[in-house]
Every structure is written in structure tokens, then in C-alpha cells.
Amino acid sequence: MSLPIKEIILAPGEGNHLIIGDSEVTFKVVGTDTNGHLGLFENLIQPGGTAPILHIHRQMEEMFYVLEGEVEIIVGDQTIQGLPGAFVLVPPRTPHTFSNRGNRPAKLLIMFCPAGEREKYFEGLAKLLKEGQPTDKDALLQLMQQFDQEPVES
């Protein structure tokens, strides 16, 4: 049985914040807010900042909307230089990644459908990428697999 979905109203900058490497993620809506239907996160990416490796999701669709700066988005065999207003839909099983190759911070909205517990992936990633800690590749792979994410060999 689905629980009723309640209104969520957040002012700019509001939402639960998480530091992942040198990027900041703000959870605007998580799966528990929408009965698992969708999640919406804001990602502030520093120039040359933390970016995911090329990967796929088997079940989930992922969407990117550039708010500020310039975000390079790789989806399938295309590389997009996303300026504010650019939108990319990534279907399931499509290799993708993103990064800030510019010289100023960039802000990206990321939406996941279905959301499941996608925020728990980001929480786990934040723990793995704490300052001064080398990345445990096995732990990262296990975290990815737990939350519908698989690396793609390039």
C-alpha cells in the first residue's frame, strides 16, 4: 500500500546536504517522499571536481538539467557541453557520466526514476571518499552494485 505523498517546499539552498569528495549534493526529494517513484538532487560540482566513473543503471532512468556553469555529460557515444538549461535523459543500460571541466563551479539537477533508496548510494559514497582516505575500489564496486549502478569498461 502506498503512503500519501506530501507537499515539499524548499527554499534555495534547503534540503539535506552531503559532501562527496569536493562536490556537494543536496537532496531535494528522495524515494521515501514519493513512494519510490523519483528522487531529485542538486549537485554543486567544483572545477575538476569529483565525478562518477562511466557507468550504467539496469533499471533506473537518470535525468540531468544544468542550472549553472558548464557540465560535460557523456551519454552513450555522445559528449555534450551542457550549459544552463541543457537537459539529458539517460535511459536504462546507457553508459554515462558527467564532470565539470570549466573553471568555475557548476550546478546540476539530477533526477532518478524510480528512485528507490538512491540517496543511500550517495551517503555511502560520501563515506568512501572522506578526505585523506584512499578509495577502496572493492567497497566502491559493492556500493555501486547494491544501488543499480555498474561500471562500464572504457
Results as ranks from 00 to 15, higher is better:
Gly124Thr: 04
Leu40Pro: 07
Leu38Lys: 00
Tyr65Asp: 01
Gly31Arg: 02
Gly132Pro: 03
Ala106Lys: 06
Ile20Tyr: 00
Lys28Ser: 04
Leu44Trp: 14
Val88Arg: 05
Ile73Met: 09
Asp77Arg: 13
Gly132Glu: 03
Asp22Glu: 06
Met63Gly: 08
Arg93Gln: 15
Val88Cys: 09
Phe41Pro: 07
Met63Ser: 11
Gly69Cys: 00
Ala11Trp: 00
Gln46Lys: 15
Pro134Lys: 12
Arg118Pro: 00
Gly21His: 08
Arg58Glu: 14
Ser154Arg: 15
Phe64Pro: 03
Arg104Ile: 09
Asp77Glu: 15
Ile73Asn: 02
Thr94Glu: 09
Val75Leu: 02
Pro92Gly: 03
Glu150Gly: 09
Leu108Asp: 04
Phe147Arg: 13
His96Tyr: 04
Ile53Trp: 08
Glu150Asp: 14
Thr26Val: 10
Phe27Gln: 08
Ser154Glu: 14
Ala126Val: 05
Glu117Arg: 13
Leu109Glu: 01
Met144Gly: 10
Gly76His: 01
Phe27Cys: 02
Thr26Gln: 09
Thr26Asp: 07
His55Asn: 06
Arg118Asn: 08
Tyr121Arg: 00
Asn103Gln: 13
Val66Lys: 00
Ile8Thr: 15
Gly124Asn: 03
Gly39Met: 04
Glu14Gln: 15
Asp22Leu: 05
Lys130Phe: 11
Pro134Cys: 08
Gln142Val: 14
Phe147Cys: 09
Leu109Met: 11
Glu42Ala: 07
Glu24Ala: 07
Ala106Ile: 01
Gly85Thr: 05
Pro114Ala: 00
Glu70Ile: 06
Glu72Arg: 11
Gly102Phe: 07
Ala86Lys: 12
Leu40Ala: 09
Tyr65Lys: 00
His96Ser: 03
Glu123Lys: 14
Lys130Glu: 14
Leu140Asp: 13
Glu153Leu: 09
Glu42Lys: 06
Arg118Ile: 14
Gly48Glu: 02
Gln133Tyr: 10
Ile74Pro: 00
Val30Ala: 11
Val29Asp: 07
Met144Phe: 12
His17Leu: 12
Val90Phe: 08
Ile19Arg: 09
Ala86Glu: 01
Pro105Ala: 04
Leu40Glu: 13
Ser2Lys: 13
His37Gly: 02
Glu42Trp: 09
Phe98His: 13
Gln46Arg: 14
Gly49Ser: 05
Thr97Phe: 11
Pro91Asp: 04
Gln78Glu: 13
Thr34Val: 03
